[in-house]
Design a protein around this nucleic acid. Structure first.
Lengths: 223, 223
DNA sequence: TAGATTGTTAATCGATTAACAATC
DNA sequence: TAGATTGTTAATCGATTAACAATC
């Protein structure tokens, strides 16, 4: 398997399948709970029972990144948790700004979700003069007109997009001008900026709601 | 293909693969845009270019639910949009309550996401006496102590869970007592209530953030 | 009718699971 | 050492794509 060296361990294989990567955060959550509970070791069999997946899948998945387990023993919980966390980027020291201080932006400003995953939030940005200059859950709110400059000056990596659809294009432009490398997009539209070397993660809450409704319909029939 | 009759068209096949179902809301979004733009017809080839998927996949997916297209013509946009919307449950008249009037609950109260998908929100619930009795974005806020009764009386189908982890179990219990059939879970924990015949859709925003970070790392290496 | 485009089958690809030898 | 459990290969399963006959 081709691996590119990082400036620290573990190595990050570049060809791990998307299906595996999508499961890593869930492993991290369960392992985090085990760490909190003081667990030292766990076998793929026990973890598989907890998570409702096959032990085989767990061993396959973890082995994409190297042999973290030990035959006859299982996996060392704190080590595995730290390794997966690092693989996922929690030690990169990413810096983020939230653009849009509406309801969703404020909700994101209030959570500890970012810092718990090693992402540092620096500020909120908005166009409303009534909120510019205020502080929301400890974060200063600046004018969108300063967005590019701020991102450059503070080496911001991630822009969190919670503005209305109509404002998205302009904000995205400013973020890219400012040198951000990733966009977490809550605007109700799809962004794809791979050409420009920007990583995008689109959130579509509405799609999730539709999925719930569909599954409710199906479950209603078969029961 | 086995089909169970509904009380209205279209028929809902019970054995469509999860991969297909997950794509339906995205089709609906693109078709909605086309409807707004006044488009009458579209071919799988043109839609595939717009959406960045293969035409083959589009035809396969749509055909799971019956022959919506016409050879030599393509698909009739308004009809297809309406059909997919109905398949997804937008005409079921589902009723929802939001439990938790914190930042996220308020953000969800503010959007038009629900009504745009045929889901009617009736109320918010919270335990904080300072917000109980107030109105948030047009929705009344009631006490969680009334949750079960309210759900029964108003035939609530869906509970949206935006309470802290610690409160989740109790609220879930009340929702099930109240007869809800679906839970949209934003609490940072996994619910699985299939045994009890309740459909659950878990949202893990943190997992999505981790995915963004991972992809940023990988893209940083290969560029 | 001729051209376009679907519906559908068959081929390919990728992901999951089972099995077991390696080994702690 | 014997027992437990991983790492890894091979088998299975499911999802995607290609191809083309059917047909509007």
């Amino acid at each position: 398997m081709k691996q590119l060296p990082l400036d620290h361990t573990p190595l990050l294989p570049v060809d791990v399948s998307p299906a595996v990567i999508k499961r890593l955060p869930r492993y991290r959550r369960y392992l985090g709970d085990l760490v909190s509970a003081g667990r030292e070791r766990i076998s793929s069999a026990e973890l598989s029972r907890m998570m409702g997946v096959t032990a085989s899948q767990i061993r396959q998945d973890l082995n994409c990144f190297g042999g973290f387990g030990q035959q006859g023993y299982g996996y060392h919980v704190p080590t595995l948790y730290d390794t997966i966390s690092e693989l996922l980027g929690t030690t990169e020291g990413y810096r983020a700004v939230i653009v849009g201080a509406g309801n969703l932006g404020r909700a994101l400003a209030a959570t500890h979700m970012f810092e718990r995953r090693g992402v540092n939030r620096l500020a909120l940005f908005d166009i409303d003069p009534r909120v510019i200059g205020t502080t929301v859950h400890g974060l200063p709110v600046y004018s969108v007109s300063q967005l590019s400059d701020f991102c450059r000056e503070h080496a911001v990596d991630i822009g969190v997009l919670t503005v209305p659809k109509e404002a998205a294009d302009e904000v995205v432009h400013a973020l890219i001008q400012g040198g951000v490398r990733g966009i977490w997009n809550f605007a109700n539209m799809e962004l794809s900026l791979q050409e420009q070397g920007v990583t995008v993660e689109n959130i579509h809450l509405g799609d999730s709601l539709m999925n719930l409704c569909y599954n409710m319909k199906v479950n209603g029939l078969t029961k």
